[in-house]
């Protein structure tokens, strides 16, 4: 078990290293001078030179990379190219905080709903209810977030006025205000997530239901409810853990669009801005953080899966 975790941690570090190298080399693709892109065509050569010196852009690429990596590990995430040249780290951490809040609320809504729907659909496989759930989740799962988001805004914010259409976060919100602000973004994200997890839960449960041990349990004379809860779900929900971890990765990515619809101050919106402004330090920092979060979620899921699955635990 410890060997397993050590191994996964090593893999995580490799992942982060490769990702950072990948992102870094992508930014090296930028044609000509980054400084010119940022400062504009009219910038004097002196200003360009000063900019390059300030950000270390005049160094050879490999040295730039190792320097950036060293600083990043030490906690110095560099300064933004954007106006104000603010330090990147506090901005990213604050945005990350907001994004995690939204992700947490979304998971709290969608996981129970999705598991419930998935299990029901599997138990009633082939009936109209299963068909309905299948078609509904299928429809929802591929819809871009801006499509669902716009519909939700029109119905619940502009139409019914239950929620805010834009999500401004201020300190000292009451619970009610939080709900009004977080409601729509979380709901929008939940739609896709529910679709996704429901489908996989249904497939997993259905697969387990057809296994011989379920027949054994039924032919023990156990009531159906106990057969389902004690025997089937224990096995069927194991893969769901992995599914949830994967969806966390999606959540963070999906946030990009959702945050931009609702003007939510999370990492996604910041990332879009960084891309538009060619703000490389910000871009790199956000990417690293997101990949780290995703990798940690996967690691946790793998460890949980191993702990809950005796077939792996006692190999």
């Amino acid at each position: 078990m410890i060997a397993f975790i050590v191994r996964r941690l090593l893999l995580l570090i490799v992942t982060l290293l490769v990702t950072s190298a990948l992102i870094f080399s992508l930014t090296q693709l930028l044609p000509g001078d980054v400084a010119r892109l940022i400062l504009g065509r009219e910038a004097t050569p002196e200003r360009v030179a000063a900019f390059n010196r300030q950000y270390g852009l005049d160094l050879p690429p490999l040295e730039q990379y190792t320097r950036w990596l060293g600083n990043f590990i030490r906690g110095d995430w560099g300064r933004s190219f954007a106006a104000g040249n603010a330090a990147v780290r506090p901005i990213v951490l604050e945005r990350l905080n907001n994004s995690l809040l939204l992700a947490g609320v979304t998971l709290a809504i969608s996981v129970p709903v999705a598991i419930f729907l998935g299990v029901i659909a599997a138990l009633r496989a082939g009936t109209w209810l299963d068909g309905l759930i299948s078609v509904a989740t299928l429809s929802v799962v591929g819809l871009p977030e801006f499509v669902t988001g716009l519909v939700l805004i029109n119905v619940f914010a502009l139409g019914l006025g239950w929620f805010e259409a834009t999500a401004l976060i201020r300190p000292g919100y009451t619970l009610g205000q939080w709900v009004r602000v977080l409601g729509l973004p979380a709901l929008t994200a939940s739609f896709v997530l529910i679709g996704y997890i429901t489908r996989l839960t249904r497939a997993g449960t259905l697969e387990e239901l057809n296994k011989p041990y379920v027949r054994t349990a039924i032919l023990k004379g156990l009531p159906r409810r106990i057969v389902i809860v004690r025997h089937v779900l224990r096995n069927a929900l194991l893969p769901t853990i992995t599914v949830i971890a994967i969806s966390i990765g999606w959540l963070i990515g999906g946030m990009v669009v959702i945050e931009s619809i609702y003007n939510y101050p999370g990492v996604g919106g910041e990332l879009v801005r960084a891309v538009e402004q060619k703000n490389l330090p910000m871009l790199q920092a956000i990417t690293m953080i997101v990949v780290l979060a995703f990798a940690l979620a996967n690691l946790t899921a793998d460890v949980l899966y191993t702990l809950l699955n005796p077939r792996i635990r006692f190999r």
């Binding site: 992942t15 990702t19 990948l22 992102i23 992508l26 930014t27 693709l29 930028l30 044609p31 892109l37 990765g249 999606w250 963070i252 990515g253 999906g254 990009v256 669009v257 990332l271 879009v272 891309v275 538009e276 060619k278 871009l283 956000i286 990417t287 997101v290 990949v291 995703f294 990798a295 996967n298």
Partner: peptide
Amino acid sequence: SIPAIILALVSLSTVVPT
């Protein structure tokens, strides 16, 4: 393990100007 949209954003922002 890099969320698709992030990879897409970063690549777009560098590939398009190139």
